[in-house]
Simulated scan of single mutants.
Amino acid sequence: MQEETQKLFDKICDPNEKEAFYFAEKLGKINTEEVRDKLIELVKGDQWEIAYLACKALSKTSFNEESLDAIFDAIRDKKNQNHQGAFVQILEEFDLSERLVDIFRVYLFGNFKAETLAKEYLDSVEFEITPRTIRKAEKHWNHYLHNPEDEGSLAIKKAEIEPMLQEMRELFSEK
């Protein structure tokens, strides 16, 4: 790895660095596979602040799918439970059109902030929907119905999710 690139990684990993966001964006503009791999490694790491900066850098690259895979893994990782909202918030920097099921899972199983942001994405992003996408969403919905984390929110989610799933099914039903 080039010396300049390594210095940028050192800057975003330094907890005392005041300009870490600036260096993360600069790092994201390098846009090489080597940088992508190192950033994804940081997203999977144990320090959520550094992982967040790595997500910020990844948002500036052309590696949308690989980056989103790593970010959704970080969102689902139990060690990031208290910081899910930050990771979900960074998703606004990415093209989410192919990620309906991942956003749907965050809405169902995320903490309050993550759930709220995921609902916003569900309402505002234009997703690519296929019959397979609908089946996957229904699978997660059925899992949630049988294992709700909060009985009080079940009625609210039911009122929001069931019409949404029905509307998606109607897209592919024969008339």
Rank of each mutant, 00 (worst) to 15 (best):
M1I: 12
E3M: 11
E3F: 11
E4F: 10
Q6V: 09
L8S: 02
L8Q: 03
K11I: 07
I12F: 00
I12P: 00
C13D: 07
D14V: 08
A20S: 11
Y22H: 11
L27W: 04
I30W: 00
I30P: 03
I30K: 04
V35N: 04
R36V: 02
R36N: 10
L39Q: 01
E41I: 01
L42V: 02
V43I: 12
G45T: 07
G45F: 05
D46A: 06
Q47P: 06
Q47F: 14
Q47V: 15
Q47D: 15
A51P: 01
Y52V: 01
S59N: 00
S59D: 01
K60H: 09
T61D: 02
N64V: 12
E65C: 13
E65N: 15
E66S: 13
S67V: 06
S67W: 06
S67F: 08
L68H: 06
D69V: 07
D77K: 14
N80P: 09
H83V: 10
H83Y: 14
A86Y: 08
L91D: 02
E93R: 07
D95Y: 03
L96E: 05
I103N: 02
V106L: 05
A114L: 02
E120P: 05
E120S: 06
Y121M: 02
L122W: 00
D123Y: 07
D123C: 05
V125K: 01
F127L: 02
K136C: 12
E138H: 06
E138W: 01
N142M: 14
H143I: 13
H143K: 13
Y144I: 11
Y144V: 10
Y144S: 08
L145T: 08
N147D: 09
E149S: 13
E149A: 12
S153D: 15
S153L: 15
I156M: 13
I156R: 13
K157R: 12
E160I: 15
E162W: 07
M164D: 08
M164H: 10
L165I: 07
E167N: 06
L171M: 15
